[in-house]
């Protein structure tokens, strides 16, 4: 019986230690590097695009609903806040699409070497920003 009490104490001590043990490499102790940044952006942009698609659905319903509603939505899109949100949505789309293609290339078995993966991460970020600037060129350089 004394043995089981002792082992219970030992287990409690171990549990206490386990609670304070570092679990996995947390974000705050990692130096940001391209592949990690792009991986995080891929998830974030995916979630942002979920919101953007619901916005697109709202616009389609506004087309169906007719004019008082459609004009309100149209004015929201035309305003500065609407434009900034649309700008970020298209940026998220270009990024998610470019990095999605990068993932498909990985799935075919290419591009896993650290140098290649870092290079393609930078490439994807630069391509997304450039494509978005080309799409919005009239807004910036008119």
């Amino acid at each position: 019986m004394s043995q089981s009490v002792a082992s219970g104490k030992k287990q409690a001590k171990q549990a206490k230690q386990a609670a304070h043990r570092p679990t996995s490499p947390h974000l705050e102790i990692w130096r940001w590097h391209p592949t990690m940044a792009v991986s995080i952006f891929h998830r974030a942009s995916g979630m942002a695009l979920a919101g953007a698609l619901i916005g697109l659905l709202v616009w389609i319903i506004a087309v169906l609903a007719g004019d008082p509603h459609y004009s309100i939505v149209n004015e929201l899109i035309g305003g500065i806040a609407g434009k900034v949100i649309l700008f970020l949505a298209t940026l998220a789309f270009f990024f998610h699409a470019a990095n999605g293609i990068r993932h498909l290339v990985w799935d075919m078995g290419f591009g896993f070497a650290p140098k290649t993966a870092n290079g393609s991460a930078w490439f994807v970020m630069i391509i997304a920003v450039c494509a978005n600037l080309v799409l919005w060129r009239d807004w910036f350089f008119y």
């Binding site: 995916g46 979630m47 695009l49 979920a50 698609l53 697109l56 659905l57 389609i60």
Partner: peptide
């Protein structure tokens, strides 16, 4: 538009599930 939305919503379901 419908084909795009249907494909995108299908894709989203899988992505949101993982998140």
């Amino acid at each position: 538009l419908f084909a795009f939305l249907a494909a995108a919503f299908f894709h989203l379901r899988l992505g949101v599930q993982v998140v």
